[in-house]
Structure formats: C-alpha cells, structure tokens
C-alpha cells in the first residue's frame, strides 16, 4: 500500500512536470507543424537561469522562476524570428535536423557559459519538508509540482476555450490559411503561442529540476521524452497531452519502482503499442 501510494504520487508529479514542459510543444506542433526537438533545450536554459539566479545570485526560488521564464522567452524570440520562421512548411527531416542543430548549439553554449557540472536550484524552506495529508505525508515539492501542473492546465484551458485569443488560436490550428483570410493575424498568434510555449518549457524545467536534474546533456536526454508525449497525446490537444503525461508518467514510474533493471524498456514498449494503435495520438484529430 505504501509502495502503491508513493508510486502514485511520484507518477503524478512526474506526469505534471512532463505536462508543463511538453504542453507548449504540443500546441506549437499542432499550430505550426514544426517538429521541434529543441524544446527541451529551452527547458534546460530555464533550469540554468533559475539555478544561476537562485543559487549564485541568491535571489530565491520565486525570483529564480521569474528570471527563468522571462529570460528564456527573451532568448527564444530572436531564434524564432531568424530560424524557426524558415521551418514552417518544410519537410520533417529538415525540421528535425535544424532543431537538433539548435539543441547542439544550446548545449555547447550553455556549458561554455555555466560550466559542465550538475546545477541545483535550492528550494525555499516551505517546499523542503513534507506535507501531512492526514493519512499520509508527501514531499511538499512533489505537491507543488502537481498543483502547478493543474494550474497550468486550467489556465491554458481558459485561455484557449474562453478568450478571443483562444478562438483565433484554434482557428489557426484548424486551418491557418483560412484563418488568415478571415482577418486573423496568424503571425502574431504564432509568435504569442511560441512565447507562451517557451515560457512554459522554462517553468517546467525549473519545477521539474528535482525529478529531471539540470545537467549538461539535459536537452538531449529528455528531447525524446517530450516528443514522445506529444506524439502519444496527439499534437495540438491539451486533454490529449495531459492524458499522455499521466499515462506515460505512470508507466515509467511504475517500471522504475518495480523492475528497475529493465530501465525504460516498458516505457518505449508502451509508446510503440500506443503509437501503432493510434497513429494520430490518443486524442489527436483525424485528418
């Protein structure tokens, strides 16, 4: 029972962190049809910036998150304008290569600036202990990650389903050319959603630093995980991404607890089964 409970909490926290990072990837992929392997690189930049602000400058955790999100978005804007713009409508191979190239550059430059050691982001005292739920106590940080994930999901749902921007976004996802013809300024929609996606990636990089340690090859190590989440959930679908994250988080965490010697074997086996059965993802639109 104890094991089941800790697996459930870890799986939920891991799934939520995955969700915060990859939901942006899912939206941009559904919107711009760019297979963005560099998404993890932005999460990594967020982690490094937060670590620098919180640990080396001593600004604290909250400031660290703020610096990470704002800083990463500022770094990402010129990259979007100069490089990603050229990828819209290109073949998958081109997109994969360009974004792998960007990832390599980010890894190289980040490690040149910050050095090739593992970075920690010191937690504030409030998040270090454990929270008593009455019948069980769980690590406060895990709870924080879960709550943040839920808030992000709710906020995104509100943004996309209930605001004017959301209507334009959905229109552009469905048919960019038609939306543009009807007066939606798609390039602004693209730019804003790209910025939101990158900001969320950075946020997830900071939130998840306890589960996915911020280290030199972070971008390369988790690149695949984020892409897998999007593919399993279905590009552009928020409920799909949430479902995929919880499912894959559960499979991965259970596998690690119960059969650690198999590594990620079951994770990828599940991925193959799901992608074969649902080529468009669990909740992806058929087209």
């Amino acid at each position: 029972m104890q094991t089941v409970f800790s697996i459930a909490v870890d799986a939920l926290a891991y799934g939520m962190v995955l969700f915060v990072i990859s939901i942006g990837l899912s939206v941009t992929m559904g919107l711009m049809r760019v297979v963005n392997l560099a998404h993890g690189a932005f999460a990594m930049i967020g982690g490094y910036l937060a670590s620098y602000a919180a640990r080396d400058l001593g600004l604290g955790y909250a400031a660290g998150i703020l610096v990470a999100v704002v800083g990463t978005v500022i770094i990402a804007i010129p990259i979007e304008r100069l490089l990603y713009r050229r990828l819209y409508g290109a073949t998958e191979l081109t997109q994969v290569l360009m974004t792998i190239g960007i990832t390599f550059c980010v890894i190289g430059i980040t490690n040149f600036i910050f050095g090739p050691t593992l970075k920690t982001i010191p937690l504030p005292p409030a998040l270090q202990g454990s929270v008593d739920l009455g019948f069980r106590s769980i690590a406060a940080h895990r709870l924080f990650a879960i709550v943040c994930g839920l808030i992000v999901a709710a906020a995104l749902w509100f943004l996309i389903e209930r605001t004017a921007f959301g209507i334009r976004l959905r229109a552009a996802v469905d048919n960019a050319a038609m939306a543009a013809a009807l007066g939606v300024r798609t390039e602004i929609v693209y730019a804003v959603s790209f910025a939101v996606a990158i900001g969320l990636a950075a946020l997830g990089g900071v939130l998840g630093a306890e589960l996915l340690p911020v280290e030199p090859y972070y971008a390369l190590r988790y690149m695949v995980t984020f892409l897998v989440v999007v593919s399993v959930g279905g590009a552009g679908s928020i409920p799909g991404a949430l479902l995929a994250c919880l499912l894959l988080g559960a499979i991965d965490t259970t596998g690690r607890y119960l059969a650690p010697e198999y590594g990620e074997f079951f994770f990828y086996l599940a991925v193959i089964v799901i992608v074969t059965l649902f080529p468009r993802g669990l909740l992806g639109r058929s087209k």
Binding site: V232, Y268, L269
Partner: peptide, 13 residues
C-alpha cells in the same frame, strides 16, 4: 511525426 517517434522508441527498446 509518429514515424519518427516509433523509430526513436525502437532504438531505445
């Protein structure tokens, strides 16, 4: 995309 992800899953498997 699904093809790419499958190929990645295969190599990890």
């Amino acid at each position: 995309l699904a093809q790419l992800v499958l190929s990645i899953a295969v190599i990890h498997l």
